[in-house]
Simulated assay, not measured.
Amino acid sequence: MERKRTRTVDVGGVGIGGGNPVRVQSMCNTDTRDVPGTLAQIGRLAEAGCEIVRLAVPDDKAAAALSTIRAKSPVPLIADIHFDHRLALAAIKAGMDGLRINPGNIGDEAKVDTVVRAAQERGVPIRIGVNGGSLEKDLLHRHGGPTPQAMVESGLRHVAMLERRNFTDIKISLKTSSVLNTIAAYRLMAERVDYPLHIGVTEAGTLVRGTVKSSVGLGILLWEGIGDTLRVSLTHDPVAEIGVAYEILRSLGLRHRGPEIIACPTCGRTEIDLITLAEQVEEALRGVEEVFTVAVMGCAVNGPGEAREADIGIAGGRGLGIIFRKGEVVRKVRGDNRLLPEFMKEIEAFLRERRS
C-alpha cells in the first residue's frame, strides 16, 4: 500500500498529512454551551484514542464557552462554523486549533479577508468541508445533482478563495451519505490537489449500518492510499466511533492501538455463554493501549490450538475454562462465574511481564 503524499498541516501539535499516521477524529454531540458536559465527553474521547475533537459553534454563547473548554482539553479542538464570520473570529481568539468552514458561506469578500487574516496570524488551519447535502445551487443545476464532480468543483472553488489570499494551511473533506459517491469524489480530488484529505461517510447511520458503510468506504480509500485523517460518523455515542476507526486502520495495517480480540462465532458445540464473555473481555480491556492479541474461544478442546497465535487466550467448556499463551495451557479454571476474573488476572500478569 503506497499512500498519496500530501503536504503537512499542523493542528495544535498534531501533524496531518506529509507521512504522519492517519489521524483519528470525532465530534462532540454535547451542547458546547454546557462546558462540564462537553469537557467530560472530550475526556472520554481522548481516553479512547481520539486525537482531534470538533465542536459545534452555533451561536455567541457557544463561542463564549470555547476559551474555557480549550484551556482544559487534553487534545486539539476544531470549531465547526457555518455562515457567521464573527463566530470564526471568536473561535480563533479563544485559541481553537482549527476551523471547519466553507469560506464562501461566511459572508462577503471583506469578511472572508478578516477571517483568513486572523487565521494566518494565529497559525490556525482551515478545513474546507463540502457536504453533498448542501452544495451551491449553481453546481447542483450544472451537474444535475450532488455528484462527485459537483462536490469536487465546490471544494476547489473554496480552495481558490483561500489561495487567492495566500492561505494554504488547508485540509479538505468531501462527505456524502453515499459510499460510492464519497469514494469517487475523493479519488477525483486526490488527483487535483496535494492538500491533506479528511475522509468520512457522513450520516452513515446507526452503530451497525454506520460501521459497515464507513468500513467499506474508508477502507477502499485508505487501501488506495487516499486519506490523511478520518472520522467514522455514527448515530451513537461518539466514543464508539474511535473504536471502529482504529479497527479499520488495524485491519489495513496502518495503525495499531490496544489489544486485538479474536473470538470464535459460536456453534452448537459451545457450552458457555461465549458472547457475553467476549463482550466482557472487550469492555475490560477498552482502556488498554498496549498492542497484543487476545483470544476468547468456545471450545476447551480445540480452542488453544485454533488460537495458538494469540498472545493470551481463554477457551471455555462446561464448567471449565482453559487459559493459554501461544497455544500452551497455563492453567485451568473451574466455574463459569470465575472465568472472567481469573482471565483478567492472567492478562494483568502478562502485561506486567511485558512492561518490566
Rank of each mutant, 00 (worst) to 15 (best):
S215L: 05
E271L: 14
A64I: 02
V288T: 09
I199K: 09
V57W: 00
E247W: 00
L285E: 00
H143Q: 11
L99V: 09
E47P: 07
D138H: 14
V9T: 11
R354N: 04
N102Q: 02
G205C: 08
A278N: 09
L55S: 05
S178F: 09
S214A: 14
H85P: 06
A119R: 08
T206I: 13
L207I: 15
G13T: 04
K137D: 05
E136R: 08
S134F: 07
R338W: 11
G95L: 01
I312K: 01
A64S: 09
V22T: 11
S215A: 14
R122W: 10
E136M: 06
G155K: 06
F343D: 05
L45I: 13
R192A: 15
Y246P: 00
E328V: 14
E163D: 09
L135C: 07
R127H: 11
V291Q: 00
G145K: 13
E241H: 08
D169M: 12
I275E: 15
I16E: 06
C267T: 15
A349K: 14
R33T: 14
L139V: 08
I248M: 10
R187M: 02
T229I: 12
E2Q: 13
G317V: 04
Q149S: 14
I322H: 02
G305T: 09
E290W: 04
E346T: 06
S67D: 12
C28Q: 05
N105F: 05
D228I: 07
K93H: 15
R308K: 15
